[in-house]
Design a protein around this nucleic acid. Structure first.
Lengths: 228, 228
DNA sequence: CTCTGCCTTCGGTCCCCCCCGAAACAAAGA
DNA sequence: TCTTTGTTTCGGGGGGGACCGAAGGCAGAG
């Protein structure tokens, strides 16, 4: 069977899809948590997770009597977001949780949504980063200013070559992913410019939401010229 | 049901996946041709195509007693390529038709594979094109040189905003898609620098293959600095 | 050690959906 | 009009796989 059909079939089951969506922010969840998200029993969950792991979409990490599952990599998260983005072509539909969710959310530890796209645009037009073969590089000026803001550029460069351009399904635009995206998002939350909402919610979408603090709005405006 | 599961379930059936792959180059095929590709009867094919059309993945165009089907848009092609790219992480597997297929192929009318990535790199490093919010723009120098080569820049700009960066599954790198990608590829084949192989083959992969003519190899080297 | 909690394996049921053959419909040509 | 070719609709059959309940490992707490 073709690769395409195999992978898509795995994602195509409602239960497995719910689990994958729950894993989209990038954190690891136990089998029990995923069972609750998918709304199925423990036995069924175990089988589904086994299939996901064997296919390479999900990786496991046993710790005590828990088994922590996470997406196998950033490419998986990007592919899922791409698929989610597909049906929303012409007429922008309304979304659960409305604009709030479209505003800012996590996708594999980086920033997506309107804010993520705005940040990406700001970095490119102000030439903090530039396109280069194999990914993106920070310009000299960009390195200096990002470093000053507390972004760990060494850590950012340790990422895979697949360095940028995750498709954003709500904005239908690429945004900043990869190591740099992760480190910038880390900085933004560390400085309390962005805050996570309800990480414990059972709602898959809610768990990914981020909000901008008043302090963060001012900072984003002065540092990046973004009006949040 | 979630959007993700619905779409992925459609792609996840072997017959439908085969049809979608056959449509990847961007041309329209009749229901009968797709039936042959998928290896199922006409009745089953009709039902599957109906589902694909209703979901918005595929569009139809009736002409006489034939019904021509094509992918609904470039985003669909990009999403399929992204999915195909997923499992090929660490150990580069060998491919049907070997390196030849990885070398150059069509993806929704633009150039993919090693050659497509090389072209993308050449255009960015030589600054014929630059990243800009919402897509890519040709620099002044790029416009002049592309125009001289016979690329229809007016037509290229008529494309959607989703202008670039289709993920390349064999190279795991973005390459030049969108209106500009299509027009450049059109120029390359019009000048017989690239030639299509076996557009009538029943093999889904073969049908997408492109080869570089001797003349084209010289031209690509002198014009873009690409050693094909 | 025992008990409790998390997870897996096994056996079995059930349903979705994928396919085919037959018939009907539509369009073009003889 | 009759035939041929391309496609759709209908009815029915069959297989894959998704779920559950029960039972069995493991790991940690008491």
């Amino acid at each position: 069977m073709s690769n395409l059909a195999t992978i898509a079939h795995l994602i195509g089951d409602p239960s497995r899809a719910a689990m994958l969506q729950a894993l989209l922010p990038g954190e690891a969840l136990t089998a029990g948590e995923l069972a609750r998200v998918a709304g199925i029993g423990a036995a069924a969950t175990s089988g589904q997770l086994k299939a996901l792991v064997e296919s390479g979409l999900v990786s496991v990490h046993a710790q005590g009597r828990h088994r922590y599952h996470r997406l196998a990599g950033e490419e998986v998260a990007a592919a899922l977001e791409t698929l989610i983005a597909l049906p929303q072509t012409s007429p922008r539909r309304s979304w659960p949780h409305g604009d709030a969710f479209r505003q800012a959310r996590l996708c594999w530890h980086h920033l997506a949504g309107r804010l993520g796209v705005a940040l990406y645009d700001s970095l490119t037009t102000d030439r903090w980063i530039e396109a280069a073969p194999g990914g993106w590089v920070a310009t000299e000026m960009g390195e200096a200013r990002l470093g000053k803001l507390g972004v760990d550029l060494v850590e950012a460069r340790r990422a895979t070559r697949f360095a940028c351009d995750c498709m954003d399904w709500s904005e239908r635009r690429p945004h900043l992913a990869g190591g740099l995206g992760r480190e910038i998002t880390s900085m933004l939350t560390r400085r309390h410019w962005l805050r996570r909402i309800e990480p414990s919610s059972s709602d898959t979408l809610l768990r990914r939401r981020l909000t901008c603090t008043p302090e963060g709005a001012r900072a984003l405006s002065s540092e990046f010229g973004i009006t949040a």
